[in-house]
């Protein structure tokens, strides 16, 4: 376990330092202390057995293009975590900003609290890669916009009755993937490309698996959550705009 004090270390130096540590020892775990907004931590990292623990608030684009490493943040995250991520795990013990998991293709992101706008935008899936975003609290508008694959789960833990579990325009432009929300919402909350879908055994299995992971990661007992209270939303079709054009 290598400890790096990141106080006053600019992101370029810090990321280079992380590269060097991981390069010298494939299995190394790293603890980053005093992180104050340094960007791009974990960008493109492919060390599948390494864990980076972050204390503080990492900056935007954390885990962008990440290819396998595990990152755990003891604090809040900022915007665009897991941007175009391929593989790996991100665990955030706090809230996050906008566009989490933009164009994410694989791996998983667990967020203890709430997230901002356009989370899971243009998430994809490909062959065995199926990205997952689990949001403990609530999500802002345009959750899962243009979603083309993968899984988004919103648990709605600890939100007050006056707060909405997801914002407006959820799943606008969705043409793949699935969104589970711990509330049965009216259609008007969703984009016109989205429909409510029936639950089956596999959904129960999947939700239980991710809820268990959440419970363990954030030391939280969620036995009171009832799987049947979740509702499931999917894309109406994978070619939403195929009849829109005429060739001239």
């Amino acid at each position: 376990m290598k400890i790096i004090d990141a106080l006053d270390v600019p992101y370029r130096t810090l990321n280079k330092l992380i590269d060097t540590v991981l390069l010298n020892n494939n299995e190394e775990n790293i603890i980053l202390k005093n992180i104050f907004g340094q960007r791009y931590i974990g960008r493109g990292l492919s060390y599948k057995n390494s864990l980076i623990q972050i204390y503080g608030t990492p900056g935007n684009d954390m885990a962008s293009y990440m290819n396998g490493t595990k990152i755990e943040v003891f604090g809040n995250g900022q915007d665009a975590i897991g941007n175009t991520m391929n593989e790996g795990t991100v665990i955030i013990h706090g809230d996050c900003g906008d566009t989490i998991g933009y164009a994410m293709r694989g791996g998983s992101i667990y967020i203890k609290g709430n997230v901002g706008y356009r989370v899971g935008i243009h998430m994809k899936e490909y062959k065995n890669m199926k990205p997952v975003i689990v949001i403990g609290g609530k999500a802002g508008e345009f959750l899962g916009e243009y979603m083309a694959g993968g899984i988004i789960i919103v648990l709605g833990i600890d939100i007050s009755k006056s707060e909405k579990i997801v914002g407006k325009f959820c799943g606008t432009g969705m043409h793949g993937g699935v969104i589970y929300i711990y509330e049965n919402l009216e259609d008007y909350n969703f984009g016109k490309e989205v429909k409510k879908s029936e639950f089956n055994e596999k959904d129960v299995e999947l939700l239980s698996k991710h809820i268990k992971f959440y419970e363990k990661a954030f030391s939280r007992n969620l036995e009171y959550l009832r799987i049947e209270k979740f509702s499931k939303y999917v894309a109406i079709g994978k070619n939403p705009y195929s009849n829109m054009y005429c060739n001239y």
């Binding site: 960007r39 935007n60 684009d61 915007d79 665009a80 941007n83 566009t99 933009y102 293709r105 356009r118 935008i121 243009h122 994809k124 899936e125 490909y126 890669m129 916009e145 243009y146 083309a148 694959g149 432009g173 043409h175 793949g176 994978k238 070619n239 939403p240 705009y241 195929s242």
Partner: peptide
């Protein structure tokens, strides 16, 4: 493209992580 066969490949009008010059820098 790393997407399933037969799925529409939709490129959104903007990059949704770029709403400003500062975001472009990012």
């Amino acid at each position: 493209r790393m997407i399933p066969i037969g799925s529409d490949a939709i490129s959104p009008a903007p990059h949704h992580d770029i709403y400003s010059i500062e975001d472009l820098r990012q």
